[in-house]
Design a protein around this nucleic acid. Structure first.
Length: 365
DNA sequence: AAGTCGGGGCG
DNA sequence: CGCCCAGACTT
């Protein structure tokens, strides 16, 4: 009669869940891999990446022994690239500290690079049936509505509150199943926008629905506006090669590759770009230069990270010493390098147009 | 406690 | 365009 929270969710799950590859295994390595891929990422977006990673890296050892550039290349387009670096670091760590055997207790799992509270709980409950509540964005939403909690879910007090609430609701007999069920319920039924509360099995006990606050749960603290950034890429061609470099600095797209970049603090026309110190440092005395196409004015390309970027084609007859720090990559080999989606899209356009780079006027400084 | 890190899909 | 997504880490 008095079905508990867990019973209702588990029954709902039995009737409604999606069949996903990482749910067909209890291999902690595969579960770990899926959890990292799915951090801040929708299932639909991560699914193919998971398949490709499993095919290429079927176990910890194969991942640990791969070069980082290959891991990043396979991760290309997924975003949050620190996940790929951490995944690789952790794989090597598992080889070193645990002889290649995936750790089996919570503290050891939690100690792996890139594994936080959520991921450790997910791995331990799914793979080992250990009683740790996994609290992700779905769980925050479900709990904040069912219990009509108005604490912000993204500050320390709120996180602690929801973690304790979820743990107190966890049936230790089947923690993995309950965690899966709660998250799937949040993903499919208790969705962020316009949930179908009329069809909800928890409707009779959902306090937010009783109070009419479903649309305002979960509560989040406001976030500061993000500073726009302006990237001016230079596709410098010389003798069939393009200049490329790896982003090693601590910033977005770390360890991915890109064209020589001049970042400015506002939209910058081409002639203004030539007056920047970066330009002068690279091309100061260079006269044998042809200026090709430039993508439409600093066009807002990326999503709400707010990066405005343009690409400028340039052809040189020789590479000056000031540019000798860059890699020289034959155009046919560009796709071996992991690049941002922004750069990937430009490369696609560029290739489709057939190495256009129609050289325009001769530039003389 | 607040910032940073991608990219895609949705209304 | 704003919001959100199987979050973790740095400052």
């Amino acid at each position: 009669m008095t079905d508990g929270f867990a019973d209702i969710l588990i029954r709902w799950y039995a009737d409604n869940h999606r069949r996903l590859p990482w749910r067909e295994t209890s291999d902690p390595y595969l579960i770990w891999l899926s959890e990292v891929i799915l951090q801040q990422t929708r299932v639909a977006q991560g699914l193919d990446y998971f398949r490709r990673f499993v095919a290429r890296f079927p176990d910890v050892r194969s991942l640990a022994e791969a070069p980082q550039d290959e891991v990043l290349k396979l991760w290309q387009g997924l975003g949050y690239y620190s996940r790929a670096r951490s995944l690789h670091t952790a794989a090597k760590d598992i080889m070193a500290r645990f002889g290649g055997r995936f750790p089996e207790d919570y503290e050891a799992v939690r100690s792996l690079c890139g594994v936080g509270d959520y991921t450790a709980a997910a791995i331990c409950s799914f793979a080992y049936e250990l009683p740790y509540a996994a609290v992700d964005g779905n769980v925050y939403r479900v709990l904040s509505r069912v219990y009509d909690v108005d604490l912000p879910v993204d500050d320390a007090a709120g996180k602690r509150y929801f973690a304790e609430l979820a743990q107190s609701l966890l049936d230790p007999v089947r923690p993995g199943l309950q965690n899966q069920a709660t998250m799937e319920f949040g993903a499919l039924q208790c969705v962020p926008q316009r949930p179908d509360c009329g069809a909800c099995p928890l409707a009779d006990r959902c306090l937010a629905q009783a109070h009419g606050t479903v649309g305002r749960r979960p509560v989040k603290r406001g976030k500061a506006a993000v500073r726009p950034r302006y990237f001016n890429y230079l596709c410098i061609r010389c003798d069939g090669t393009l200049l490329l470099r790896q982003r090693t600095e601590k910033d977005i797209w770390r360890n991915l590759y890109e064209f020589p970049l001049i970042e400015t603090d506002a939209e910058t026309e081409f002639d203004a770009l030539q007056r920047t110190s970066a330009w002068k440092a690279w091309f100061g005395g260079e006269r044998r230069m042809r200026i090709g196409e430039r993508t439409a004015m600093p066009r807002h390309v990326l999503s709400h990270r707010i990066i405005y970027a343009c690409f400028q084609e340039i052809e040189l007859e020789r590479i000056p010493d000031s540019l000798s720090g860059f890699l020289r990559v034959p155009e046919a080999e560009l796709d071996r390098y992991a690049v941002s989606r922004l750069t990937e899209r430009y490369l696609e356009r560029r290739r489709a147009a057939g190495v256009n780079v129609k050289v325009g006027k001769l530039f003389d400084s």
